[in-house]
Amino acid sequence: MVLIYIDHSEKEIKKSSHEAISYGAAIAKQLGCSAEALLLGTVNDDLTALGKLGASKVHQLNNESLNNFDAKVHASLIATAATNLNAEVIVFAHNINGKAIAPAVAVKLDAGIVTGACSLPDLQNGFEVTKTVFSGKAFAHIKIETPKKVIAINQNSFGIQNFEASATVVEMTLPIPAASVKVTNVNKIIGEIPLTEANLVVSGGRGLKGPENWGILLDLAKALGAATACSRPVSDSDWRPHHEHVGQTGIQIAPNLYIAIGISGAIQHLAGVNRSKTIVVINKDPEAPFFKAADYGVVGDAFEVVPALTAAISKMKHNE
């Protein structure tokens, strides 16, 4: 059986977990077994609808206290559930919480793990999974040598499937270990799209000259419904908050569309964004290295091009 861990926050299942279910269901199909999901805590989502993504069952540990994430407690419960349910493969989203617990679960199950996976396993010579390495500059094909396997799938690398099916919800009871962390404060920027979950990202660099000029970028992001990001010098100079810094030493993202405005395209910047499906570069310097990594490019002054692009997007949306 393939067991997929469902991550959630504020009573809502994360998009990356939807993708993980679809990915786990595809592995189950390869192995000829069932794909079942595991939920710790409570959500507002309709759990039977997870059948559409490919889960035949949803095992739920229905306990409000688990809505607070505690890596030690969660890893221990997942490992126990996986053992009780006899799971062969355990799938996580390689997202913030997945990174905190998937490796611990692997240790507890004596399972080999591949994090940052971006392919279905190749079963020809055992169980081989491809992962991104060198911050997206290369791939490694890794063989998992143990009977049990843990895989954490990169966000936005597999996609979401749609089946005509519904899942059965099964309540599970397990003793809950004592909490090891106490959540004392949560500070969420309401209404903003989290960068790691965003399909569309608009990003600005030093070419925008100063924080006072960010309005044109925010307008474009708003017109598109995109999240915003920036280059390292921009966050280092406090023009934008740290959590927007993408690149080798910031956040690595792989949206469907990345629009880079006034960013030169240094190798360390590219390392964080080169897995984006489509890259648009707006830069006044035709020699900017970013154009080599781009799908579409506009050589021009951002202060003219960006408002024009925003107007064109709004026009398109208006005509839809």
Binding site: E128, D295, V299
Partner: peptide, 19 residues
């Protein structure tokens, strides 16, 4: 628990379309 069998490089972009 794991071993690296091979590395590979991503296909390079086919070239930018300028607008």
């Amino acid at each position: 628990h794991t071993s690296i069998k091979e590395f590979s490089l991503p296909p390079s972009k086919t070239g930018v379309k300028l607008i």
